[in-house]
Design a protein around this nucleic acid. Sequence first.
DNA 1: ACAGTTATCAAACTTTTTGTTTGATAATTG
DNA 2: CAATTATCAAACAAAAAGTTTGATAACTGT
Lengths: 186, 186
Amino acid sequence: MKNKIDLRIIKTNKVLFEALITLMEQKDFEKIKISDICDQALINRSTFYAHYEDKYDLLLAMINDLKNNLERELKENKEEDISKNYFMELLKILINHVDEKRETYNSILKNDKNGIVIDFLIDVSYRDLTSRLKNNNIISIIPIDVITKFYIGGIVNIGIDWVKNKNKYTKEELLLYFDKLIPDKV
Amino acid sequence: MKNKIDLRIIKTNKVLFEALITLMEQKDFEKIKISDICDQALINRSTFYAHYEDKYDLLLAMINDLKNNLERELKENKEEDISKNYFMELLKILINHVDEKRETYNSILKNDKNGIVIDFLIDVSYRDLTSRLKNNNIISIIPIDVITKFYIGGIVNIGIDWVKNKNKYTKEELLLYFDKLIPDKV
DNA sequence: ACAGTTATCAAACTTTTTGTTTGATAATTG
DNA sequence: CAATTATCAAACAAAAAGTTTGATAACTGT
């Protein structure tokens, strides 16, 4: 009674994710047919329907998987060296995460699905960003979650640019830019 | 030989735009059928195909129309009082514009089609934002278009929040927040 | 290693949605 | 008012989405 997940299910999910990413790099999400996905993934169409309602359902599952990965990585890496600047730590992990899953993020962003990404970024970074901004005098005038949304929006928008144009600047430069652009203590 | 646009065409476009907005407020763009749009707009489906290839084509036309409106408003209003701070002028017009077309923007943002909106915002505001940031010392370290992307991203992300939650803060407060958050001269 | 379970498969099928074509009619233009 | 043309209903054809079947192969737990 171990209740292990069937290997075939894991495999099917994997090939479906990969197929969707490949296709989203080639064409608009809107124009992708379920049969395209199945052809690319080399699975039967009825198998697709055994797992997902439609392609949007599949996309959400893929993004959710991504989020779980990120959260795991954050847990694993944050404990290692506990410096005072938690938020820059987080950004560093985040940048590496995106760099490793570049094709996936690129395919999502290309198709304008970044709202979902922004939501989970706010989720993941809200606490650390807030604590970075806490010492700042700006906070007395503007509601804290408005400020948070502002900087997350900025980070994501640069991130999008960075993902789309791989070689315009390095990870280290990117991190430096963020550090300069996001106010620290007064 | 005036070559005027047929009134019927204008009317059809109008009801199609309105129908799309209404439906996008109710459900995902992905789930909207062309026949839904036609039912809502009270036009024949063959008429739809006489104007647009598919619903995505219609969406793009709607967004393009929005952009043209904004650009016209900018031209009209900017000349009135020419203060030194062009960028805040622009933001003010922008905020009023979005406020007036709130349902439209709301339906677009709800459906995660903001990439297109960001693109045209960068288009429209790049020059004035750049000139506001020009006097800032940060510019020597970070490429100017990276900075621009950062602040546009922030503005849009707060804007999204503002559109979605109409009564959280006023237009005037919103403008004040932007002014505080976007650095001016050193 | 084996018995029981279940995910995948091919294939045929129904239903839904898309896209096209027709010719008649009504609205618009100059 | 005559000529033009956008819209319409209606009937199609074609494509894509879903569903169902029973056979087979892959996986699980003991």
